[in-house]
Design a binder for these strands. Sequence first.
DNA 1: TTGCGTGCAAAGGTTTTGCATGGCA
DNA 2: TGCCATGCAAAACCTTTGCACGCAA
Lengths: 138, 138
Amino acid sequence: MRRHPANYNTKQSEAVLACLAKHKDEYITAAQIGEHFQKSGDPVSRTTIYRQLERLVQEGRARKYTFDGTQGACFRYAEQPENEQDFYHLKCEGCGGIFHLKCDEVDHVSRHIFETHAFQVNDSKTVFYGKCNMCLPK
Amino acid sequence: MRRHPANYNTKQSEAVLACLAKHKDEYITAAQIGEHFQKSGDPVSRTTIYRQLERLVQEGRARKYTFDGTQGACFRYAEQPENEQDFYHLKCEGCGGIFHLKCDEVDHVSRHIFETHAFQVNDSKTVFYGKCNMCLPK
DNA sequence: TTGCGTGCAAAGGTTTTGCATGGCA
DNA sequence: TGCCATGCAAAACCTTTGCACGCAA
């Protein structure tokens, strides 16, 4: 039988996805997902978490990011937006927060870069580093 | 005696900086710097490389980046541009190449994000992920 | 002697892989 | 039986830290 994504899942697969959904837009790490399961009284091995995350990314149900972190580089994961819409990311170097940006002006620049500089921007992965409102001096 | 940056350097410090200069705009890793010294017949310990890189970044003579890599997250380093100018980065997800972008339109968006979305963009760290000319389908 | 750069070794992280087990069709 | 998800342990990385040594002021 040809498996469809919909029934290709196991308990842990769904659990990992549910965890990403619960921590919507938080861009959690594999370790954090592990802690989540630990607390919920149903621990899942780190290995399984990584394998499920990899699968979810392959299936287009999760996204993998490499944001600049304070303690070192590591991968972070988030749910794939349901409507497939793309948005830019603002990463605050002060508080570490990650914000979404949906903005026509940026879309315009994205097109401009493609037309003028022959580079096709993948909006959802693009990251503007900087300082958020709260972290700006004064 | 108060040391000045100019005479605060040792052989390895200069060597690391020279290596960054030699691999200009390549955004090399600590490991690659190590290989560079290995090949040149004058090996330097990994520890020293990291320490010199940290110092160079502190002194504003090098920049530290966290680019999304294929084989995992790690830090990459590059010379600080002599004229202190900032530019955006285009990271090709196909070939892994990193390109510089100096563009008024992007500068404009940078200001727009600050004025409208209250987020101050650090231009030199901002990364547009996507596909370069060579890697675009067709 | 004092300060500091250096390098070895070890530690602390994250992520991946090998292998045996167990569930389910 | 056969497939495959699971989990333990170990490996492979990257980066940082502790400690002792040696050079130069």
